[in-house]
Simulated scan of single mutants.
Amino acid sequence: MTGSATERTGAPRTPLGDAGTKLPDTMSGWRLTVRAFMRSRLAVTGLGIIVFFALFCFVGPYLYVTDQVTVDPVSSLLPPGGAHPLGTDAQGFDVLGRIMEGGRASLQIGLFAALIATGIGTLYGTVAGLAGGVVDGLMMRVVDTFLSIPFLFIVLIVATRFSSTVLSLSLTLGAFSWLAPARLVRAEVLALRSRGFVAAATVMGATKARIIARHLIPNALGVVIVNITFQVADAIIAVSLLGFLGFGLNYPDVEWGTQLSEGVSYLLSGSWWLIYPVGGCLVLVVMAFNFVGDALRDSVDVRLRRR
C-alpha cells in the first residue's frame, strides 16, 4: 500500500512556508493584540509621541543643561533666539529647559497617580464583583457616593492642606481617581466569575484571595492596561489644572500647569513663547495617551473575538 509517511501514521499535516519553516495554525491572544495595535496609525503616532517626550523630559536635561534654580532678572523675558531657543520667562529661566523639567514632573505625577488609582480600583472592583449580592451592592454605593462629590473640589482641599510635591500630588490624585477603574474591573469580573475556570478553582478548594490573584485579575488585565493609559492622561490634565490654579508644585519644582499660569499674565504683552510651547506639549502628550488607549481598547476587543 502506497502513501506518504504522514498519511500512513495519521500524523497531522503542518503547513510550510516558502523556506520550509512551520507556520503556526493559531496565534496567541497577545500577539493578535500587538498586531491589531500596530495597524492603527494613530496608535503608532501616539506611542512615538510618548517615547519622544519621555526622552525629551528625562534625557533632555542632561544634554541641554540649564540653571532652573537661580533667578536671573537680567535675562528676564528674552525672546527666542541665540542661547535660548524658546526664550526666557519672567524669572530669567530658559523656557526650553523649564519645559523639560515641568514635563518630567507632569509625567511622573501622571504615571504614579494612574498606577495608584488603577491598583486600588482593580482590587476594589475585583472583590466587589466576586462577592456579589449585598456586599457588592454596598461597595458600589460607596463608589456612587464618592462619584457624586466633585473631584476637583476634594483635590483642592487636600492640596491646600499638604505641601505640593511629586509624591503628595500623585497620592492625592491617585486616591481620588480609583472610582472609574473599580467600576470597569467589577463589570469584567462579573462576566469572568461565571466562567468554568473559576468554578473549577472553587471546587478544588481555592480561597477567594487565590482566585482573585491567580484567575480574575490576570484575565482582567486587558481592561486594566487600557484604563492606565486613560488614567495617565486624566492625571496630567488634573495636575496641570491644579498648577494653573496655583496649587501645583512649589519652587524650584515646576510642572506644565504652573508654567501656563505664570505665562498667562505676559501673553498680552507679546511674550507668546511662555504659553504656546508648553501648551502644545501638554496637548500632544494628552492626545498621545488617548490615542494609545483607544487603540489598546480596540486591540483587546480583537483579541477577545479571535480566541
Rank of each mutant, 00 (worst) to 15 (best):
M1T: 10
T2F: 08
S4A: 11
A5K: 11
T6W: 01
E7Y: 14
E7T: 14
G10D: 07
G10L: 04
R13Y: 05
R13C: 02
T14N: 09
A19K: 12
K22Q: 09
P24D: 06
T26L: 09
T26Q: 14
M27R: 12
M27I: 04
G29H: 01
R31S: 14
L32V: 13
R35I: 07
A36E: 12
A36R: 15
R41E: 14
A43M: 04
T45K: 01
G46C: 08
I50P: 11
F56P: 13
F56G: 13
C57L: 06
V59I: 15
Y62T: 13
Y62Q: 10
V65F: 05
T70N: 14
T70L: 11
V74R: 10
V74P: 00
S75W: 05
P80M: 13
G81K: 00
G87V: 03
V95G: 12
L96S: 06
G97Y: 07
I99G: 06
M100G: 10
E101V: 12
G102D: 01
L107N: 03
Q108R: 13
I109T: 07
F112R: 02
A113R: 12
L115D: 15
G119A: 14
I120S: 09
T122N: 12
T126N: 04
V127T: 13
L130M: 09
A131G: 03
A131T: 08
G132V: 12
G133S: 09
M139C: 06
R141K: 14
V142C: 10
D144H: 07
T145Q: 02
T145S: 11
I149Q: 07
I149D: 08
R161F: 11
F162I: 11
T165N: 06
L167G: 00
L167W: 07
L169T: 02
F176Q: 03
R183T: 11
V185I: 15
R186I: 03
R186W: 10
A187I: 00
V189K: 05
L190T: 03
L190E: 11
L192Q: 11
R193C: 03
R193D: 02
S194M: 08
G196V: 03
V198Q: 02
T202L: 04
V203P: 07
K208A: 08
I211D: 02
G222L: 06
V223R: 13
V223T: 15
I225K: 01
I225W: 13
V226T: 15
V232N: 01
A233M: 10
A235T: 05
I236L: 08
L241W: 04
L242S: 09
G246D: 07
N250E: 13
N250P: 01
Y251V: 08
P252A: 12
D253L: 14
V254I: 15
Q259V: 12
S261I: 03
E262P: 00
E262D: 15
V264K: 03
Y266D: 06
S269P: 01
G270Y: 04
P277L: 01
P277K: 01
V278C: 05
G279C: 04
C281T: 05
L284Q: 04
A288K: 13
F289P: 07
V292D: 09
D294H: 07
R297V: 02
D298N: 13
S299N: 00
D301N: 14
D301H: 02
V302G: 01
